[in-house]
């Protein structure tokens, strides 16, 4: 049974694509067959983060418009078997995506036996974002610890509950998760950022994880490696924890406080 997972936020630049790449990669590392789709038509991004930008021949829109089939358009990851990328088109405009077209692609992926289909949503709450979440079974709502990001996440949670295929057809609602990204413990301790407690209190959805602000993320995207592959890094480990929770395992939250440990204690764990 395929599960469609949307990574969404409302607000732009909060870490959706970073998260999509790492969640897709992490699920594939756990042995699941995974496709990750870039819904941000016109602004290719995911292929860069996944490091497949030089191998894009056909893209998502080509498949939607019947110019290529899925087999031609799916780019197989060279690091991990079972992981495929469906890139966004840089040339087509946003209206190229239709509900029917998206459904056709998702159905095709289900028929191909994918366990997880990860949809990287564009920012905003307009058509592109609505299409990315429309067929979702689960949603990871990404938010940074600041007021406007939380407000947009709240708005998106409302849309998930009312404007999705599941909502419109009175099916069990989309399972919602909150993922806090770019959390800076030092700034949180200084009271410059919203606390995780306040975010959870307002958004009232279960917390999937907290990804710390980390230079490893930029390094990773510069080298076309999803940061989850960097298991030395705090962000990579936090994403691995989030994957475990997504798969139903229990993991304590980490990286919430300012790191005061020395080199050795870090090396040998807690």
């Amino acid at each position: 049974m395929s599960k469609i997972l949307v990574i969404t936020s409302g607000k732009g630049g909060v870490g959706k694509t970073t998260t999509s790449a790492s969640i897709a990669t992490g699920l594939a590392q756990r042995g699941h067959k995974v496709a990750v789709i870039d819904f941000d038509v016109g602004l290719r991004n995911l292929d860069l983060i996944m490091g497949v930008e030089r191998r894009v021949v056909y893209d998502f829109v080509n498949v939607v418009q019947g110019e290529a089939n899925l087999t031609q358009a799916l780019i197989k990851d060279k690091r991990i078997g079972n992981l495929y990328v469906l890139a966004a088109s840089q040339t087509k405009d946003k209206d190229a995506l239709t509900e029917e077209g998206v459904k056709k692609v998702l159905d095709g992926l289900k028929d191909d036996g994918f366990d997880f289909i990860v949809c990287d949503s564009p920012a905003g709450i307009e058509k592109g974002a609505q299409l990315a979440m429309y067929f979702a079974d689960e949603a990871i709502v990404v938010s940074n610890p600041e007021v406007s990001s939380v407000r947009d996440a709240d708005r998106m949670l409302g849309l998930l509950a009312s404007k999705s295929y599941r909502a419109v057809n009175n099916m069990p609602s989309i399972k919602q998760h909150l993922l806090v990204t770019r959390y800076a413990p030092a700034r949180a301790e200084a009271g410059e950022m919203m606390s995780i407690e306040d975010m959870m209190e307002i958004l009232a959805v279960p917390l999937l994880g907290v990804i710390p602000e980390s230079p490893a993320v930029l390094n990773a995207s510069n080298s076309g490696q999803p940061v989850i592959l960097d298991q030395e890094s705090d962000a990579g480990q936090a994403y691995a924890d989030a994957i475990a929770r997504l798969l139903g395992e229990e993991r304590p939250l980490r990286f919430l406080t300012v790191e005061k440990k020395g080199f050795f204690s870090r090396l040998f764990g807690n």
Binding site: I125, R151, D152, D154, R155, L157, G158, L159, A161, S162, E201, I202, L203, A204
Partner: peptide
């Protein structure tokens, strides 16, 4: 939770909300 962008109207009666009513 009543979320940003949502509206509720109890026409002709009372409105009882067991959760929070969020900003927006």
């Amino acid at each position: 939770t009543v979320r940003a962008g949502q509206q509720l109207y109890a026409r002709g009666g009372d409105l009882i909300i067991e959760a929070s009513v969020n900003e927006g």
